[in-house]
Nucleic acid binder design. Sequence first.
DNA 1: GTCACGATGTCAGCGACTGTCATCAGCCGC
DNA 2: GCGGCTGATGACAGTCGCTGACATCGTGAC
Lengths: 187, 187
Amino acid sequence: MVRWQPDTRARLQAAALGLFVDRGYDETTAADIAEAAGVTERTFFRHFADKREVLFDGQQFFSGAFVDGVRAAGPDDPPLAVVASALDGAAAFFPDERRAWSRSRQAIIDAHPALQERELLKLSGLAVEVAAALRDHGVDEPAATLAAQSCLTVFGVSFATWIADGENRPFAEISRDTLARLRALTG
Amino acid sequence: MVRWQPDTRARLQAAALGLFVDRGYDETTAADIAEAAGVTERTFFRHFADKREVLFDGQQFFSGAFVDGVRAAGPDDPPLAVVASALDGAAAFFPDERRAWSRSRQAIIDAHPALQERELLKLSGLAVEVAAALRDHGVDEPAATLAAQSCLTVFGVSFATWIADGENRPFAEISRDTLARLRALTG
DNA sequence: GTCACGATGTCAGCGACTGTCATCAGCCGC
DNA sequence: GCGGCTGATGACAGTCGCTGACATCGTGAC
């Protein structure tokens, strides 16, 4: 007999997503989530720094994909080619099977400014990491920060397109197209 | 005899900024700010939706400057020229006399993730407004959103440069230089 | 068998924020 | 002037997010 059920963290995340979808973010208390997962509210806050964070866990793997993409680029590639490589790396996180899940998660976030804030903070942190990777890759400031922010701009537009109604192209195709459109803006 | 002192809102903002500088954001309660302004905590929350908002009021004038800059651009200007015009419009909000004040305000924000979140949300809303102005100006999607995000990218890097130690060039000069560097990224 | 460890429970408490009702100066119509 | 309306504020109770401190008790090392 085990004293507690395993995977408390994952159970809390699943319970939270379900409750947010069913009755809304504001109408779900941290105690509700904990109860649904069979633990106490205190345990919820031992696993997640705050109530929003339960939706934003695991972003370190996500940023790792961008950074790996940067490292995979050729050492003499121009900055935007490195950005293209970072976006290709990120595409692995958005296979078609995940599109429906991403849509419902994003619907929750889009309905709550507090969650949008958290998402923006995570993306901002991601941009800082990409900029650092670009500097390691030989790109100087301020070009590294400008390129990293452009990378996130393309990512944001591409992601929104990827989850749009009726869209069925794979993420990588969309992001390549979006980057090309950003390039066209300058020309 | 008036029943209450005038300018409650402005008094609350001034009291908040002072307390945040003196003893820190986390160590300042909403009740502290209210007391320093001579009102009750309840009145604080009638003027500001939450404790963070007291630092972020008046952004509608700020976004208006960007939008006016977009409208001032030539009808056939390419998107990035319109962005340049928007940045010139924003420059009016950053005269040299405000540089020291901007530095201390930004120091408070940079020290608190919760405040960074709010700032990012405000900037995100600003990007949405700039994108709408660009569409009104004849720029189609997704170019409008890409250009608006690029506008905010240049703004962010320019602002950080403007308040950096030892920097004394005017904002408009910095933003023009930053935009040129973003353009150069493609070439 | 003992003992340290680590995940959890329990409980008290603070601060952010809200709903509700009372108060009362100033203004408006008469 | 008089009475009623309005709008900003005070007073107060209450919910929820979140934290610190301490107790509990399977589990694995020894």
